Amino acid sequence: MPDIWFYHLEKTPLPQVLPDLLEKVVQKGWRAYVHGHDDDKIEVLNGHLWAYSPASFLAHGREGNELAPRQPVLLGTSGDMVNMPDVYVSVAPVDFPDVSVLQRCLVVFEGGDEDHLGWARQQWKRLKGEGADLAYWKQNAQGRWEKMQ
């Protein structure tokens, strides 16, 4: 079972946080699959990843594209991780695919979304009960991540 890290967004919205998280994944030489629950949200994230910084480029693609298996970062809604990722990133309340062979899972949820927050709490309880290695990260007043005990 991989390490599973929960990121509780309170200060910064998902489109602003996701590029930083994905850049760290890619810097480690890992690949990522970003799992959303609807095409509209995935399209917003896709557009933001293309334009978030004029000084950076984060190679990525969407499911269904013929180059999807080659993408270092793949965004989708199916859970079919055809790019063979090392990291699974959940950005919506969706069922996890089989993540047993991955290095890490990131569960990123916005505190203002009660449905997503409730789902994240249920996942934490379920995974904790299964003996998973969990970490909870929360933004401090300056917007920096702090690992909570």
Rank of each mutant, 00 (worst) to 15 (best):
P2C: 12
P2Y: 12
I4K: 10
I4R: 14
W5K: 06
F6T: 01
Y7G: 11
Y7L: 03
H8C: 12
L9Q: 00
L9F: 02
E10G: 06
K11G: 01
P19Y: 09
P19V: 07
D20E: 06
D20V: 05
D20P: 00
L22Q: 02
L22C: 05
V26Q: 05
V26D: 03
Q27H: 05
K28G: 11
K28S: 14
G29S: 04
G29A: 02
W30E: 01
R31M: 02
Y33Q: 06
V34R: 00
V34K: 00
V34D: 00
D40W: 13
D40S: 03
K41S: 10
K41T: 14
G47V: 14
H48W: 12
A51R: 06
S53F: 02
S53T: 11
P54W: 07
P54Y: 14
A55F: 12
F57W: 04
G61R: 02
G61W: 01
R62K: 15
L67C: 02
P69D: 09
R70Y: 02
V73Y: 03
L74R: 03
T77D: 07
D80I: 07
D80Q: 02
D80P: 07
V82W: 10
V82H: 05
V82R: 12
M84I: 05
P85M: 14
P85E: 09
D86F: 03
D86N: 02
D86I: 03
V87P: 00
V89H: 09
A92V: 10
P93I: 06
V94H: 05
V94M: 12
D95N: 13
F96I: 04
P97E: 12
V99S: 04
S100A: 08
S100F: 05
S100Q: 06
V101F: 11
L102R: 01
R104H: 07
C105V: 13
C105P: 00
L106K: 05
V107Q: 00
V108E: 01
E110M: 15
E110T: 10
E114A: 08
H116Y: 08
H116K: 04
L117H: 03
L117T: 01
L117N: 06
G118S: 14
W119H: 06
W119F: 04
W119K: 08
R121V: 03
R121F: 09
R121I: 10
Q122S: 15
Q122I: 04
Q122G: 10
Q123W: 13
K125P: 00
R126N: 15
R126A: 12
E130P: 04
A132W: 04
A135V: 06
W137K: 11
W137P: 09
N140C: 15
N140D: 07
N140K: 14
A141I: 08
A141M: 05
E146I: 15
Q149S: 02
